[in-house]
Structures are given as structure tokens and as C-alpha cells.
């Protein structure tokens, strides 16, 4: 009885998720796909999306790793507040984030005026919006990974004369790699799909700030076929990213469970 209910619920959910995806794939203009793909507008959006996503993921990993490590291993006053601020973009409407970024880094913005810089409507703004929105998707798993490292191994390294930096590089980092990779892939996927904050903060300039999601939105109003091609491309990229992540963490996960006799 409950089993039948579970199967029914599963089937319904699968249809709910599957039918839209299938509809999109079925509407792909097979005949003109190749020609469509080589259109400069689509190529431009694709290139911009890949470059900005790569850059923002890199920034997130570089800045987020130490933050995640500190959050996982230290306690300090106001830690809860810091954690909540970091998590906030996960639930914040992206347009609100975009507006906040605009008020901070815009021409009349707080930082903009102080430093005399102008970020909006540049590629840098796209990257900044992606970093803002996607960082928590990296920090959360990274932090969990660092928390999961057995303290006894860190202690053992200390009694073996290893400095904190050496221990981090040779013990903590290798053991946390699966979590960091998973976090980076999640952040990357989120950055790739970023729309609201980007269009609010960076605008919608083809070749400069018009990433794939923005291009889909624009094309949707004039050229449905172009929108479909872009959407399918985006979907394939995201699907590949998540599938690769699963394969990678699956492999590393089983390996790391093999090598953790300490965690009995």
C-alpha cells in the first residue's frame, strides 16, 4: 500500500520534472541546429557564460576555502551572524541581490563613489553577481568537509612537527577534496544559471553582460527557436556538470570510506 503510494508519488514527480525537459528537447530544430549554433549571438552568449562562470568559480574557491575552513574549525563572537550572511544569497530573490550590488558598486553607490570606479554594465559585474549568488553553494559543502576531517589526524600531524600550513596542505586538503570538488561544481552550476542579479546589476549588453540565461530571455520574445537552442545548450552543460560531479564524488566517496578506519 505505502509502496504503491511511493511509486505513484515518484512517477508523478518524475513526470512533472521530465515533461518540460522532454518538451524542450522535442522542439529542438534538428535541421537548422548546426546553423543556429554557429550564429554569432549564440556563440557570444556561450563564450561569455563559460568565461564568467569559470572566473567566478575560481574566485569562489580561492576566497571561499579559507572562509569555510575558519568557520569549520574556529569559534568566534558573531559567528552565527557571519554564517547567516553567507547563506543569505541562497534564499534571497536574485533581483534583490542585484539591486544591493547596484547600490554598493554603482555610479552613485557606496563603494563606487568612494573608489571612483564604475562596475555596472561590465563583464566584471557579471562575475561579481555570480560570485555573490553562488558562493554559499561552495562554502556549505566545503565547510561540512572541513568539519568532517578527524581532529585526531590533525593532532597527529602537530606531534610530528608539522606546521598548521603543512598539515592543511598534506592532510586536511587531500581528505576534503571530494567535498571541495562537489561544492565547486554546485557553485559553477549555479553561476551558469544566474539570471536575476546579473540582469539587475550588470544589465543586458550583448557580448559584454548578456550571458546565456539572459540571451534565452531576450530571444524568447522575438525568436523562439533561438531561445530553444540556447536553453538546450544550457541544459546540456548543467546536466554534464552535475553528472560529472556525481561520478567524481561517487568514486572519491567510496575511496574515502575505504581509507577512514579512524572514523569508527
Amino acid at each position: 500500500m505505502t509502496r504503491a503510494a511511493a511509486i505513484a508519488a515518484g512517477a508523478l514527480l518524475l513526470l512533472l520534472l521530465g515533461i518540460p525537459i522532454a518538451s524542450l528537447i522535442l522542439r529542438v530544430p534538428a535541421a537548422s541546429l548546426a546553423a543556429r549554433m554557429s550564429e554569432p549571438a549564440i556563440q557570444e552568449a556561450l563564450r561569455l557564460s563559460l568565461v564568467t562562470t569559470l572566473a567566478s568559480t575560481l574566485i569562489i574557491v580561492l576566497l571561499g576555502t579559507p572562509v569555510a575552513y575558519v568557520l569549520a574549525t574556529r569559534s568566534f563572537p558573531g559567528k552565527r551572524v557571519v554564517e547567516t550572511v553567507i547563506d543569505l544569497p541562497m534564499v534571497l530573490p536574485p533581483t534583490v541581490a542585484g539591486l544591493a550590488l547596484l547600490l554598493a558598486f554603482g555610479r552613485a553607490g557606496f563603494v563606487g563613489r568612494a573608489l571612483g570606479i564604475e562596475l555596472p554594465f561590465t563583464t566584471l559585474a557579471v562575475i561579481l553577481a555570480q560570485v555573490f549568488m553562488s558562493a554559499p553553494f561552495f562554502i556549505a559543502p566545503a565547510r561540512a568537509g572541513f568539519s568532517g576531517v578527524d581532529r585526531r589526524l590533525v593532532d597527529a600531524a602537530a606531534t610530528l612537527r608539522a606546521s598548521e600550513g603543512y598539515t592543511f596542505a598534506r592532510v586536511v586538503l587531500p581528505l576534503t577534496l571530494p567535498s571541495l570538488t562537489a561544492g565547486a561544481a554546485m557553485a559553477c552550476a549555479r553561476a551558469l544559471g544566474e539570471f536575476g542579479a546579473t540582469i539587475t546589476f550588470a544589465g543586458n549588453l550583448p557580448g559584454v553582460t548578456q550571458t546565456m540565461p539572459l540571451a534565452v530571455y531576450v530571444a524568447f520574445q522575438s525568436d523562439l527557436e533561438a531561445a530553444i537552442v540556447l536553453s538546450v545548450l544550457l541544459m546540456i552543460l548543467s546536466f554534464g556538470l552535475l553528472l560529472g560531479l556525481r561520478a567524481a564524488t561517487g568514486r572519491m566517496g567510496s575511496a574515502s570510506s575505504l581509507v577512514s578506519p579512524i572514523a569508527r
Binding site: L153, A157, T159, S163, P174, P261, I262
Partner: peptide
């Protein structure tokens, strides 16, 4: 890390991702 004291914990706390030789060489490499 600055004390000249060796410590073998109850569960040995060997580094699970390193081989036997690398485990033993760890302190020297550090």
C-alpha cells in the same frame, strides 16, 4: 609541533590517504 615529544594515539591516527612509507616519512618531510 615545537615539542620534542612523540605521541601514538590509541587508534594510531595513521593518515588514511598516505601509504605506509609516506606516513612514516611525514614528520621528516614536515
Amino acid at each position: 609541533s615545537k615539542r620534542s615529544i612523540g605521541y601514538v594515539a590509541q587508534d594510531y591516527a595513521l593518515f588514511p590517504h598516505l601509504g605506509v612509507l609516506e606516513n612514516v616519512a611525514f614528520g621528516l618531510r614536515a
